[in-house]
């Protein structure tokens, strides 16, 4: 016998299911009025410093179908690369947003401040990115990924450098499609499958 480790095991995930909106964004589920407003309506408020951008896209299952029932959460630094709560962080940036695939078209939109580069533990800079977490029916444990920006210098980003198959880096790039506008599509399976993270 050996000493007993006092370490617990994380509770097992379960799918958010088709009605995840009821708990997280009830107005989207057709259930307004329980709370004053849905949580995470916007990751910023008026006066946030930096460039306001809009990211639109869809999330596709393995057949190519744009899913209508996915819910997303985003978490990001402010325009200067500081996370909310860190010293000097922009008080107008909450950094957190919840949004959903449209129930008719599957399209999603995230309107936010373009984040700044963030310093990692080893002192290396991470290129500007937004962390994304995805839940839906058929997803048994929430999927983490990141949105980077094709018009930024991503050459020294430590996470992107870890991707062996270089073409797959492109799956994490939001593409400029107009002034302040980006396109970011997510593919759960098959050709162009998005890089998901165990992080």
């Amino acid at each position: 016998m050996v000493q007993k480790l006092g370490v617990l095991t994380e509770t097992a995930s379960q799918t958010g299911g088709p009605y995840v909106h009821i708990g997280c964004i009830p107005s989207f589920a057709g259930l307004p009025g329980v709370y004053p407003e849905d949580l995470g309506l916007s990751p910023m408020s008026d006066g946030a410093k930096g460039e306001v951008i809009t990211i639109t896209g869809s999330i596709h299952d393995g057949t190519g179908w744009a899913m209508r029932d996915a819910m997303f959460e985003s978490w990001q630094a402010d325009g200067a690369g500081r996370y909310p709560g860190q010293p000097g962080a922009d008080p107008a940036v909450s950094g957190f947003c919840r949004f959903a695939a449209d129930k008719d078209s599957g399209a999603f939109t995230l309107r936010t401040i373009k984040p700044g580069a963030v310093r990692g533990h080893d002192g290396r800079m991470m290129a500007p990115h937004i962390s994304i977490w995805i839940v839906a029916r058929g997803i048994n444990i929430g999927l983490h990924t990141r949105i980077y920006f094709a018009d930024e210098d991503n050459s020294a980003d430590p996470l992107l450098a870890r991707i062996e198959q270089r073409p797959r880096v492109e799956t994490l790039m939001a593409r400029p499609v107009g002034p302040g506008a980006y396109r970011f599509d997510i593919r759960l399976q098959g050709p162009g499958e998005t890089v998901f993270l165990d992080i």
Partner: peptide, 18 residues
């Protein structure tokens, strides 16, 4: 789950401030 689970391995990495 058959059409909504990634086929490819997740990219494992130590956590960062993000």
């Amino acid at each position: 789950t058959m059409t909504r689970s990634p086929n490819l391995p997740l990219l494992s990495m130590e956590s960062t401030p993000s």
